[in-house]
Amino acid sequence: MISPQSIPFFPEGVELNNQSLALVDTQLGAAHPLNQVSCALLEQVNGERTIRQITQQLSFQYGWDEEEVEGDFLQLIAQLNGFYLVNIRTPFQIGEAVKQGMVSFLYFTRTLQGVRWEVKKRFTPHKKNSVSLLIFLLKVMAQTYSPMIASLGLAGMLIALILPYTSFLAGLTLPLFFLLFFTVHEWAHIIVFEKLTKHKLPYFLATRRGAFQFVRPRIDMKGELLVSFAGPLIPSVSGVALSIVLYFTSMPIWLFLILVFIAANGLVHLISYLPFAEDGKRMKEAVQMNKLTQSQEVKS
């Protein structure tokens, strides 16, 4: 949640153009028009001043009503943050942290819904090779999915207590492989996209409450299919291969249960290929778009 104590700053790839009154996203090649007041407020964003400090300064300078301007500026920052054009940093305060915790809980229970409860963060990884990118992603995913990982860890421990022959190690494989497979999933999307576009097309990564996004421009149908297909491939193949091994091989029960948990974590990624899931939807859209383009070409 964005508060007057939040410090806004522009992420890499976003520039304010005073002359054309627009926020320019150089990575996605898009310009977002602004009015003069918004532009004047955003000019003061330097990654050090809080929303309140900026409104106080400008209200004093131009004789605006502080309370009204602060509300409008908060709304503007929330909107721009929703489009990944502004990042937010909120200095730690106990009261604010408690409030954030309550909002997180109510958002998890869906008592609160909608984008205004989210704070998005955009960043561009500058990693020399795929291994360092994987390690970087592992860190980001651990932060983003920490509540989910903690819940799975607790569930794993409880399963280990209740089910016979289940060890704590088996319980731990649940959160560990959840994290590992999800990281590999996103990593594969990025690597294939970079290879296909020969590192020429820019992209960025983004996080929001409990979700990670790889935001990139659209490419041709074959490329879209490959990028979308690559993500869930490694976890799914690992899950299927492990399931086959488990079916045909006999092993101690404790080891069997550990491998069952790992396989289950991998098999979950097969859902991503279904048309309603993110990757499946992208693949479907790419094929539909291609058909539409072809039919238009035939007509013309």
């Binding site: 869906r110 008592t111 819904q113 209740i162």
Partner: peptide, 28 residues
Amino acid sequence: KKLIFAFITGMILTLVITVILSLGYGVY
């Protein structure tokens, strides 16, 4: 739609948590 979503989420979460707590009570 959001109202139904809030109802289903509250229901499922409570069901899962109650079952987990009950299982935990059984073990304890």
